[in-house]
């Protein structure tokens, strides 16, 4: 490899740093905001707090609701991830490995799901969830969330499965292993990167979803954290420092999740979606 000149290296670093600053500054302001009083937040939103006040963070962390919201969000998001990965990988496997009549139509049918944000049909969706008796029930969020993530998941997983060497299956077939057994014994274990990728995207979507939990959940003990944030925004007052502290605390789990999965994501995307 040719060595780049010092100047171009410098330009590269400057450009990257500039973009990184644009990304980080708002996030930093959010994080620091939680340490300020309302007054200081208004007067100096970006500076370091003149006095580090941990009150708001301690208030949130020792209060009962934060951990409840967090647990609810975790239960719902992780369940949605597991369910999506299971259902979508099974379907994607069939699409990738088995030729059958109507396969193409069924795939196009599933693709429709990508064109359809929750808000479009939230009222009909609500009545559907009510019909199944799933209001005020985490399943009332997990199942629709899974359904809405399905299209995206199937697309990525199918491409990945198509690239698994065919010879592997033939060898397994000779050993008396059918499609079903092969899926659990070989396909799934070989697919960690793409499963991590899809899992992360589903997790993030579910973790941040606001509209669906809003219509499904009424009891505060079942609330997820985006509902919790809105809880702080009342009719006449906005406690910005509290909201910012809350946001900071809730980005953390998603960030941790991502840090662990990020190397798989690149690998997963590489082999899953983008090779022809």
């Amino acid at each position: 490899m040719k060595r780049s000149s010092l100047l171009s290296q410098l330009l590269r670093a400057a450009f990257l740093t500039f973009i990184a600053a644009l990304v980080i500054l708002p996030l930093l302001a959010t994080f620091l905001g939680g340490f300020k009083t309302l007054g200081e937040l208004r007067a100096a939103p970006f500076g370091f707090p003149s006095h580090w006040s941990f009150d708001v963070f301690i208030d949130i962390l020792t209060g009962p609701v934060f951990w409840t919201y967090l647990r609810n969000s975790l239960v719902i998001s992780l369940s949605a991830v597991v369910l999506t990965l299971l259902c979508a990988s099974m379907a994607a496997y069939v699409f990738a490995q088995i030729r059958f009549f109507g396969s193409r139509y069924l795939q196009s049918y599933m693709l429709l799901g990508m064109m359809f944000p929750f808000a479009t049909a939230i009222v009909p969706l609500f009545f559907q969830i009510n019909r199944f008796g799933l209001l005020d029930n985490p399943l009332g969020i997990i199942l629709p969330q899974t359904a809405f993530s399905m299209a995206f998941a199937v697309i990525l997983l199918r491409s990945f499965f198509q690239q698994l060497p065919k010879e592997l299956f033939e060898a397994a077939y000779v050993d008396g292993c059918g499609y079903v057994g092969f899926f659990f014994r070989f396909t799934l274990p070989l697919s960690t990167p793409i499963l991590a990728t899809v899992g992360t995207f589903v997790f993030v979507q579910s973790w941040n979803n606001y509209l669906l939990p809003l219509v499904v959940l009424n009891e505060q003990s079942l609330f997820t954290w985006p509902l919790g944030i809105m809880q702080f925004r009342g009719e006449f007052i906005v406690e910005w420092n509290r909201i910012l502290a809350f946001v900071s605390l809730t980005i953390l789990p998603a960030l941790v999740f991502f840090t662990f999965t990020q190397k798989y994501i690149v690998a997963g995307l590489t082999r899953g979606s983008v090779k022809g």
Partner: peptide, 23 residues
């Protein structure tokens, strides 16, 4: 595999995405 693997995804998808669209 077809009978076992396809229905969960298709069913969930139909119930919670397609059905509301039609409604």
């Amino acid at each position: 595999a077809l009978m076992l693997f396809l229905p969960p995804a298709v069913l969930l998808f139909s119930l919670f995405v397609i059905w509301p669209i039609f409604t």
